[in-house]
Design a protein around this nucleic acid. Structure first.
Length: 419
RNA sequence: GUGGCUGUAGCUCAAUGGUAGAGCUCCGGUUUGUGGUACCGGCUGUUGCGGGUUCGAGCCCCGUCAGCCACCCCA
């Protein structure tokens, strides 16, 4: 039996990496005053099918009928859930609302490197503020987050755009705003389509391709000026690049949109997000009307990226070795003292130490080897000298004999020293 | 969903169509109270799965599943 395609078993070493990721996610969110929430993994599929929600994501929905004959779907993202939750109780929270989530999401699509069917996503959303200051706060959080993994401006950049710039552009050329969605879809894919094909698709709009290229090349997105000024003030300007070519696939984005991408290698977008000022109103049939901006980061791409960038990898390595499975290993040198060792083990565990010992008779040399491989910093030898025991610092092989009653205090002090 | 490449031990990989191997890992040992090195020994395979061609298939052919890559799109 193997896992289903796109799903993963998380062995302890994999789970340790996950702990590293989610730990930094939570810390970054915390620094910006965001609080954690979660919602159901399974939702009524109506949540995603309702107008304005998904777009292309609908084709990747894990959808089925449950035993109560309800049409349900595993969440492909958490934004609709968040929107529903906030819409339901937003009066109980002061604005702006800063919420984040670390949760599993599912998308039925062909798996590839950095893209799975089940993945962990970090989602950050700021609701109740429609100003560029809110956009900046969220973008800054994303930059900070990526930097905390050891990534710098030489490793990633954030492409910034604004759908309103395109709406203005269309208005200027006399295109009805109702057609904007279709038009943006073409722009989104323009980079990868043959020129003739693009021209053919653009024909109905009466705007020459050259004009569009000129517009993108101009790089002028006046709507982004306040956001850029804000980021400049934070010293984060170098991480962002205005780029009208970014439009993004999700249908609910209304203004600023952005995506973080790796500068080296051929990985996909690391993170993506934008402003969705109408989603709450749409999902609540107008009962709640809050502007919102947010982004999501997936674990699969980030893990790949860390593997590729030495600086990020060594930072991760440092974390992984800093939390070894055990701190103290009891070496039972004399089986007659096993009962004493058990008592000592429980006492030290009671003090909060992560501790292990051999479950049966084993040669002392082997026990030291085990202590080493488990990452213990100390070995405590219990033998015929009892009530004296020997504590040994595995790192420098220094050891010291002391009475077992003094051990707890000695260890506590050594902990203070090392940390 | 489309196309290309790949599939051999837990991992990395060998094996002109002729009896499936190595390194690493893991486990045990090097005579019994001190450690990542060294030495010795041991375990593991329906060669992804199912058909076909052949005296004989890990190798050739077909199918299928899975993985990788490129599209599509996204985290």
């Amino acid at each position: 039996m193997k896992t289903l395609p796109g799903f993963r078993d998380l062995f302890p070493e994999d789970f340790a990496r996950r702990r590293y990721l989610s730990g930094l996610w939570r810390e970054a969110a915390g620094r910006y005053g965001f609080v954690e929430f979660d919602g159901p993994t399974l939702e009524s599929s109506e949540l995603y099918r309702k107008k304005n929600s998904g777009g292309e994501i609908l084709g990747q929905l894990y959808e089925f009928t449950d035993k109560g004959d309800r049409s349900v779907a595993l969440r492909p993202e958490v934004t609709p859930t968040l929107a529903r939750m906030v819409a339901a109780k937003h009066r109980e929270y002061p604005k702006p609302i800063r919420w984040f989530n670390v949760g599993t999401c599912f998308r039925y699509e062909r798996q590839q490197r950095g893209r799975l069917r089940e993945f962990l996503q970090f989602n950050c959303d700021l609701l109740g503020d429609a100003t560029p200051a809110a956009d900046a706060e969220v973008v800054a959080l994303l930059i900070d987050l990526l930097r905390s993994f050891g990534l710098g401006s030489e490793h990633f950049a954030i492409r910034l755009s604004d759908r309103s710039a395109w709406h203005d552009f269309l208005a200027l050329h006399g295109v009805e705003s109702a057609c904007a969605g279709e038009f943006l879809n073409i722009v989104d894919k323009m980079e990868k389509m043959p020129v003739e094909k693009t021209e053919e698709l653009l024909a109905p709009f009466g705007i020459p391709l050259a004009t569009i290229h000129q517009f993108i090349a101009s790089g002028r997105i006046p709507a982004l000026d306040p956001l850029l000024a804000d980021l400049e003030a934070r010293g984060l300007r170098e991480f962002v690049r205005p780029d009208l070519g970014v439009v993004r696939g999700l249908a609910y984005y209304t203004g600023v949109v952005f995506e973080a991408f790796a500068l080296q290698g051929n990985l996909r977008a690391i993170a993506g997000g934008g402003r969705y000022d109408r989603l709450l109103a749409d999902l609540s049939d107008g009962s709640a009307d809050l502007p919102a901006v947010g982004f999501g980061v997936g674990d699969a791409v980030l893990l790949e990226l860390i593997n590729e960038i030495p600086a990020a990898k060594s930072l991760e390595e440092k974390f992984l070795t800093s939390v070894p499975p055990v701190q103290i290993y009891l070496v039972i040198a004399d089986e007659k003292q096993r009962a004493k060792a058990l008592g000592l083990a429980q006492q030290l565990r009671g003090e909060g130490w992560r501790l292990a010992y051999p479950l049966g008779p084993e040669k002392v040399g082997k026990q030291f080897g085990t202590a080493e491989s488990l990452g213990a910093s100390h070995a405590v030898v219990i033998g015929s000298e009892w009530p004296s025991v020997t504590v040994k610092y595995l790192a420098d092989r220094m050891e010291q004999e002391l009475d077992h009653s003094a051990l707890a205090v000695w260890l506590a002090e050594s902990k203070a020293l090392t940390s």
